[in-house]
Simulated assay, not measured.
Amino acid sequence: MNLELGKYAEAVLSSYAVSLVLIFSLVWLSLRRSRKVKAQLDEVEVRRKQNG
């Protein structure tokens, strides 16, 4: 695969790099947040079972 990007190669490749970093960051933050919320929900469920 031979890409001919010409004089815009640096701008195009850096844009791709920034986009990939942002996408991976959003996925990582979403997974981290979902684990935290799941732990909180599990804690609430345990307390509810103890009191109910």
Score class of each variant (00 low, 15 high):
L13A: 01
L13T: 04
E10L: 03
Y16T: 04
S15E: 04
W28H: 12
K49V: 05
L20Q: 12
R47F: 07
K36P: 00
M1S: 14
V37T: 10
Q50E: 13
L13S: 02
S14V: 08
Y16F: 12
Q50Y: 04
R35V: 07
S14K: 15
F24Q: 06
V12K: 02
R47K: 13
M1R: 12
Y16H: 05
V46N: 06
F24I: 06
E45C: 08
K36D: 03
G6M: 02
Y8R: 00
L26E: 09
D42R: 15
L5V: 01
L13F: 01
G6C: 03
R47I: 02
A9I: 00
R33Y: 07
L31P: 01
R33V: 09
Q40H: 13
V27F: 05
D42L: 15
V21D: 12
W28A: 14
V37F: 04
R48E: 03
S25D: 10
S19K: 12
N51G: 01
L5F: 08
L26D: 09
K49L: 11
L3F: 15
S25L: 14
L20T: 02
L26Q: 09
D42C: 11
E10N: 03
R33P: 01
D42K: 15
V27L: 14
G6R: 00
W28N: 08
K49S: 09
G6Y: 01
